[in-house]
Structures are given as C-alpha cells and as structure tokens.
Design a binder for these strands. Structure first.
Length: 568
RNA sequence: GCUUGUGUGGCUCAAUGGCAGAGCAGCUCACUUGUAAUGAGCAGGUUGUCGGUUCGAUUCCGACCACAAGCUCCA
C-alpha cells in the first residue's frame, strides 16, 4: 500500500470516529489505523454496533465527506495535550505512553480533533469512495484481560473502480476457500458433531497420502528416520516435560484404570522416550527422528477455522539431537529443507523469530544464547525475518515460517525451535570422545506444520486444481456413446495398470456434460473416445487448463503424464 | 473464551405468525450424443436443538449448539 492510500484510509478512519462521536457522544475513542485491506477504529461504547448502526454511521460519514472540512495538524506540549483529551481515557493513556520529548500531534477536522501522528489528506472531501464492512470485538491494546472495545472495519479507495475491483477480488477469493472446495471436490469436511475435528474422504486421503509420499522422499534424502509414539501417555510424563505447568489449559485428559493420562498435545515427550531407549555415541549425532504425530489441543471455539485451526491435527514433527557444535549446521539444514519443499509448491513465505514468552522454562541466559544462535543462522542464510517478541514455545525460541491463504490471512506452518530445556528435564545423554556423558541439544521442527493446515493452504493456493502428482483423479475416460464403452474400458484399464489414478465415466450423457463435470472437479486430463479414436487406437486428450490437445496414442499420453510427474 | 451476525432437503438459495418452494445433485425412463449443463417423471423437510409467547411458530422471545468475520490464542 502506498503512502497516499495509507493517508486516505487514515483520514477515513478519522471521519468514522467523527461520525461515531456525532451519533454517540458518549463513545470513547481508542485507536484507528490504516491497514492492508482498509482501516478500522476501536470504540468503547455502551452497546456494540449492529449492521444497522453501521449503515447510519456510514451515512453520517458521507455527510462529513461532503462538508469538506480542512484536516489540520497542530502540536501541543504534554500538559495541554492531556487537557485536550481529558474526557478520552484511552487517548490520555496513549499520550502518557509517549516518550518525553516526542512531539504530540493532533489532527482537527471541523468540530472533531484526534490525537494522531498522521499523515492525512488535506480535507474530508477527498474521502469519497469508502465502505464500512464489519463491526467486531477487540481488546484494548490487544490484551484479553483489558476492556472489550467495538472495532469497526472499513475500506477506502481513490476511485469507485478500485473499490469494485477490491470487492470482486474478495468474491474470487471466496471461491478458492478450502472449506468450500473441500466439500465440492469431496476432499474433507467438518461437521457439527466434531467441531475442530476434520473428516477426510477418499479423494482427500489420496491428496494427503501423496503429500506424505513426497514428504517421506524429501526427508529420507535429508537424513531423517521415522518413528511413531503413542497418542495417550501417562500424566506423570507431562509433569516432567513441563507441559502440565505451561500448557495444561490446552490439553485433553483421560483416565485408565483410575490413573490419569494425557491425550498428547505435542509429540516431544514421546520423542524423548524414543531417544532414551539406548545409549548414543557422539559419532551417531546428529540423530534426526521424524514423526507424523497426531496431536489434540483444546483451542478456543472462536478460534476454529476450517482446516486451518483445528483441535486434532497431524504434525510432520521431527526432533533432532545434536552436539552443541552441530547446532548451526542443523539449523541451516532445516531452513534449507523448508525452502526446498515450499519452492516445489511455489509458495512465498514470511519468516518470524519468536522470542521468550511470559511463561517460560529455564534460565534467561540460556534463552538469550538460543535466540542469538537462531538469529545468527537467519543472518548467515540472508533470510528476511521479523521479530515476534514473546511468541516462543515455553521451552525455547523459534523460527516460524508463515504462508498466506486466499484472503491474505497468514498462517504459521513450518517451525524450528531450539530447545535446551527438554534434554535437561529428560536427562538425555550421549557419550563424547572423552568417554564421558554429555547433554545433547535438541531442535523441534515441522516443515508442513500441520498436515491439515497445509492441505488447506494447498487447496486455496491451487484453487483445487492440484498438480498432477497430487490430483486425486489424474485422468478421466469419457466414451462418446455406449458403443465406445468397451474401448473406453480398455483405455481405463491400461491407465490403471500403468499406475495412474483414472476414472471412467460411461454414463449415457452428452460429452459436453461429462466434460463440464470433469472440469468442475478439476481433473487434469479428460480422454474423449469416439469412432475416430477407436479406429486409430488413440485418445483425444483435453487438459483442464489448455483445452483440446488433440489425439495421440494412449502410450504417448501416458508418457506425457510421466514427464509431468517427474517435474516434482 | 469475547463481540456482531447466520442456521430452511446432500449442495446453492426462495418464502411466510395460518398446508414450506425452486435449481443443482440423486433415482427411473427416453435420447446415442464430438470438447463446460438433453428432455420428462419420481423421490427427498419435525425449517440446528431445547424451552417460552400464541388458537396456531419455520417466522416473535430466551437458552444452548454449530458456523462466519474479527479479537485473543496458536501448527
């Protein structure tokens, strides 16, 4: 977003606040910035706004825009500034938080004045094309312990055409929504009966299993071995790992013969036991143990979102055990693996370094060291990243890799966590060259993150038209009439024998209809078989993206598919 | 969990304080088709659940459940 658009939207948010102040004189103003999609303003009001209220507010905003108030900046010394906002407790708090010596600026338009750093457009008449989109709850300073505010979202543009393009883009994005495509393509779904517990159907399982086959191939190449640990483990283990103390609110519990057990929310404690099954030599390190672990976490009901945030998911987890000297190269190895796998799908990703949270384990000095190691690795690999303070795991800082969905919402997928704590809790050891026992360092990491979330992202990324390798159905055979059914069965059998995922649509329907259905199902190839093809022993190939590709021998077509598969 | 909204056949959506309707999908029949929807017929519903108001509730009210958007949280 350029500066001019930002200023326009910021001014729109002031006009919003002015309109609300006119209609609800008791409303207290919090903050109102321009954002990627538009702008918002947070208000402390008696009753949260309903859609009807928003219409009235929007109408008042139009009046303010028509009145073309000059938007004027002025600065005040602290005392006077506080006096200006004496009836606005949130503004007072903002002013008090400003460092001494910082200029305190206000913007005035008509009867309305707001504390603001700017910049703005020169008068309210500039804000012609705008729309309020929703009202939701937000917390003062983003903290759930604080006052609940009513946040009004809107968007603004310079021209009607831009606004229309924005709304059209939102409609287009809605068509790629994985929740919609999951149902339409018969891949996966969520039901009332299992909030946050997704179902995968046969076609969804093919996608999932192909993804896993690719994952296993890449991990084998990267020197990983695979394990599996139990879903349910004794309560005592979770006390030892620190999860009980730091993660209890998110855990599910059960009893077996009167003793307490935990449904695992993470795979690491089980992984630790797998490491401890025998003694390790420094010559064997690093050990890279991967696990496709199903974890259950009690996420807040309001946080659930399709496959993106669920209560039961499969992590493509791995725990790497190493000597301190091996840390940098192992971190780099993970960063490279993530990059290699994401590139295959053409993903752009964002990287964050998440540091020590409020609820943490161990010594601050250890944390500082770990954070520095991660940061050094990012710098060494010239990775662009931003710091996300306080968002680390309770046992260590992490590097997170975020992907975006069709609406631009960002979801954490890969993660790389450096952990000095768990090896301590579990007294992990290896024998060094000196013959003595040493404590290994460990890395927790995922690449896909959650298989479910990744499939959600993948579905939206490709709008359901998955690459051949991941398509649940790769080719569909479409006989023109009943008399071509036998030849069609031969072609279908040949495709299946060659290992391709094929379907046969021998219904007595018009070819246009069958093609339409195959197209809607985003099947990569359609093979139309009529008299000509039967006579010549060929197949007429249509691709979902390129239309009619003409006739070719069936073996030629299969060779073409093989070549396409070899790309990944 | 919080705020606002939504909930009608498998899917997409109408309608109304007084017998709940359409398209798609499904089933049956006819058509034998050349690159994005052939026609006809049949079947499919305790209008999310539980209460309340009412002669009568799918419609109004309340609680609960689920979903959507956002906040919080996180893979």
């Amino acid at each position: 977003m350029d500066d001019q658009l930002r200023a326009l939207r910021h001014s729109a948010s002031h006009i919003l606040a002015q309109a609300v102040t006119r209609l609800y004189p008791d409303a207290k103003l919090a903050i109102g910035p321009a954002i990627e999609q538009g702008f918002y303003y947070d208000f402390d009001v008696e009753k949260p706004f309903t859609p009807e209220d928003l219409e009235a507010i929007e109408a008042e905003m139009k009046v303010i825009a028509r009145e073309r108030y000059r938007i004027e900046r002025f600065e005040l010394p602290r005392e006077q500034a506080l006096e200006t906002v004496r009836s606005q407790p949130y503004k007072r708090e903002l002013i008090c938080a400003l460092p001494e010596g910082e200029p305190i600026s206000f913007y005035k338009q008509g009867e309305f004045t707001d504390l603001c750093a700017g910049p703005h457009v020169d008068h309210t008449g500039r804000v012609k094309v705008f729309k309020l989109t929703s009202a939701t709850a937000a917390y003062w300073r983003g903290d759930a312990r604080n006052q609940t505010l009513c946040r009004v979202y809107g968007t603004a543009f310079f021209t009607k055409e831009e606004l229309q393009a924005h709304l059209t883009a939102l409609e287009e994005a809605a068509k790629r929504d994985h929740r919609k495509l999951g149902r339409e393509l018969d891949l996966f779904a969520l039901y009332d009966e299992g909030p946050g517990f997704p179902f995968f159907f046969p076609k969804g399982m093919i996608l999932r299993n192909e993804l896993l086959a690719f994952w296993r191939q890449e991990h084998k190449r990267a020197g990983y071995e695979e394990i599996s640990t139990p879903l349910i483990l004794r309560e005592e283990l979770w006390h030892r790992s620190g999860h009980w103390e730091h993660y209890k609110d998110n855990m599910y519990f059960t009893n077996i013969d009167d003793s307490g057990f935990v449904i695992k929310p993470m795979n690491c404690p089980g992984g630790m036991l797998a490491y401890k099954r025998r003694m390790w030599s420094y010559r064997e390190l690093p050990v890279r143990m991967a696990e496709l672990g199903v974890v259950h976490r009690h996420e807040l009901s309001g946080a659930l979102h399709g496959l993106m945030r669920v209560r039961s998911f499969t992590q493509d987890d791995a725990h790497l055990y190493m000597t301190p000297e091996q840390i940098p190269s192992e971190i780099v190895g993970v960063i490279e693996l993530v990059d290699r796998i994401y590139k295959v799908f053409g993903f752009e990703y964002r990287v964050e370094l998440s540091t020590r949270p409020e609820s943490y384990m161990g010594e601050i000095a250890t944390w500082d060291k770990a954070e520095r190691i991660l940061e050094d690795a990012l710098i060494a690999k010239s990775v662009n990243y931003r710091v996300n303070p306080g968002d680390g795991a309770f046992y260590g800082p992490k590097i997170d890799f975020h992907l975006v969905d069709s609406l631009g919402r960002s979801w954490q997928c890969a993660t790389l966590q450096l952990d000095f704590q768990m090896p301590e809790c579990f007294e992990l050891e290896y024998i060094g060259p000196d013959g003595a026992a040493h404590r290994p360092v460990m890395i927790h990491r995922t690449v896909l993150g959650s298989l479910e979330r990744f499939i959600g992202i993948l579905t939206e990324h490709y709008a359901g038209a998955f690459p051949l390798r991941f398509s649940p159905v790769q080719a569909i055979v479409l006989p023109l009439t009943d008399r071509h059914a036998e030849y069609a069965r031969d072609v279908f059998a040949a495709l299946q024998d060659a290992g391709f995922r094929a379907e046969l649509d021998a219904r007595s329907e018009k070819i246009g209809y069958k093609i339409r259905q195959a197209q809607v199902q985003k099947i990569p190839y359609m093979l139309v078989l009529g008299d000509k093809e039967e006579e010549n022993g060929t197949v007429a190939v249509r691709s979902r993206s390129g239309g009619d590709l003409g006739a070719m021998k069936c073996c030629e077509f299969m060779e073409k598919m093989r070549q396409e598969l070899n790309i990944t």
